[in-house]
Amino acid sequence: MCDNCGCETTEENIFLPKEAKIIKAVQATADVKLFTLKMADGYIHWDPGQFLEVSLFGYGEIPIGFASSPTRPESFDIAIRTVGRVSGAINKLVAGDSMFLRAPLGTGFPINLLRGQDVIIVAGGIGLCPTRSLIQYIMDRRDEFKKFTLIYGAKNPSQQMFKDELATWKKSSDIDFYDIVDKADENWKGEVGLITSLFAKTNLNPETRAVICGPPIMFKFVVMELNKRGIKNENIFLDLERRMKCGVGKCGHCQINDQYVCVDGPVFPLSKAKQLEEAL
């Protein structure tokens, strides 16, 4: 039995995926599709921040973060942006189709270190998808966490995902939610500018735990804002992206110094990432 979830650590073929059925497929933005899935054999356990290797036979496999919380176990979501061969093929699938998964993989967000603390999540672009697993988790178990802040930056209003949920979060007293776009369109009434400008609106105590997920360029500037507010590097967690093939610490593509992002991460405390010259 494994320590994490009690599943059997049998000598099964780690490269043999399992079938999942698409219950729902909606276009989240022009190039991002949100899939709601259910395993064909009904069983999957995951932690927020963990990921899956999603495949279509003939096209290949890609690593994708869970985009929904295990507190909603009846199904799970993944969001895929069309960038290459595999994502392009998967995004042509519709409800009723199957995709093939190896999951859960990697080390997710350190829920135990966030519990009982103020939490801020900073998500840029597609980074909202993997963090959504944590956002939903915190919202579903709201009592276990103190003040909860979410900052979300998108390129433009049409690239904003989960619009219904964003509206709910905006109204909710359980979460301080701020969003911004780099470039507005005629209908946009919200903030325009860099994601870091939203920090002026927040009121963060130095003991706040922070989670950052977004394009690599964003990390540096967000970290500066957090540090400015007295938040220490060991309380800042980064969700990193690298090239991945196997997802199980073998193929070497995702290695950052001596760390395998697919096993040791994808979530790393900034204090640890700082020791990895190749991380940031």
Binding site: F15, S55, F57, G58, Y59, G60, E61, K245, C246, K250, C251, G252, H253
Partner: peptide, 22 residues
């Protein structure tokens, strides 16, 4: 280290997922 690639057989429906030394 290895790379993984999928290929179809000539029948264009069956195929293999193969790893290659990288």
């Amino acid at each position: 280290c290895f790379d993984v690639q999928d290929k179809w057989n000539v029948d264009q429906t069956s195929g293999v997922r193969t790893r290659y030394w990288d």
